[in-house]
Design a protein around this nucleic acid. Sequence first.
DNA 1: AGACTAATGTCAGTGACTGACATTAGTTAA
DNA 2: TTAACTAATGTCAGTCACTGACATTAGTCT
Lengths: 200, 200
Amino acid sequence: MGPTQELGRRDRKKNDTRDRLINEAARLFEANGFDETTTAEIADAADVAQRTLFRHFPTKEAVLFGDMVDLRHELHDALAARPDDEPVVEAVRQAVLALADDHMRHAQRRRVQFRLAAAVPSVSAYSRAVVQTGWEREIIAAAAARLGVDPITDPRPEILAGAAMSALRVATRQWTAGPATADFVDLADQALRAIAEIQR
Amino acid sequence: MGPTQELGRRDRKKNDTRDRLINEAARLFEANGFDETTTAEIADAADVAQRTLFRHFPTKEAVLFGDMVDLRHELHDALAARPDDEPVVEAVRQAVLALADDHMRHAQRRRVQFRLAAAVPSVSAYSRAVVQTGWEREIIAAAAARLGVDPITDPRPEILAGAAMSALRVATRQWTAGPATADFVDLADQALRAIAEIQR
DNA sequence: AGACTAATGTCAGTGACTGACATTAGTTAA
DNA sequence: TTAACTAATGTCAGTCACTGACATTAGTCT
């Protein structure tokens, strides 16, 4: 049924190795800290060579966010799924809520990632420059398509995307600071609705 | 007269060393590329030990953006200089235009930095996560103060800041792609005015 | 001149990441 | 089943950003 069944043993093992690296890394990062954990230790814990880790991930930070790769595609699909006649801001809001929903469904892991992103400079930089920028690009492309404009010459798609990511960051910070039981989707929804209210 | 006169020989030499590092780095980066230039080469060119470079700058990327440190303070002052009764979006727009103006006055250097930020991942990450985020924080604080709200609970200051930085990025990209004679302030102004137009 | 100390130099690390090459182990066709 | 093929992994040596510890140089101040 699942695509897992359709994979050969080789690809299954490859996925297992990748998953083990992600999980062992998260465990070690949480237990000992990000900078205090070496890539050699992660590889050892996952029972592979250090070289193998760097064949699966380009950087140590990428291992920490390894479980977020599909999120960009999910965002892309969520944006494409919104009706064409819906206002752009609405479509973006709904699509970003899909991200928030995913965060809630992986609350434990995400809270570790967010806490590290708030505390460790290199993690913060990666989160901003790689993860969030990736999402931003999806929003820019979708918004530009909906408005029927060129995102290079027309600044509106990028501005909207930047506003949405800022809102998501606010919600993320509030969620990370508060109890894990808080509803991330609610927080994100509140923040996203404020986009309409920045004209004083 | 200038504060240069009031400095002792020691501090003057320290500033000279710092300036030499910044200038030699920019020269080498432009000539040979960022990744292709080692910190040892930069230090050699500036005629200091590699260790001295890392006493002046925390990372190789920081050397490239070394001439932008005061910009954050300039932005802070520009924000504080706006009249209290002015609408927040207006105040932010005017203050960010001060940044754009500074870019124009250092066009040659800034174009090198922007080109590298567009091409080299680690430079892009630094620009986003350190430089731009620093500016963003100034805008957030100023906007929150003007609105009389807490920037942790109220998402509007951060959303406005994110929108402004996005606008600045669009203008930066357009300026970097076009001729050096183009008016950056005009481009930035156009982009910033579009903040008011993201409600479809 | 001499005490004080900020800036720099020297040196020996650590750790992320890479290229080159060898080895293991699924896969696939004969 | 076996042999050829190749994707994934292992091994190893190396580069380079960055750091701690300690020595040295050179302004500064009395």
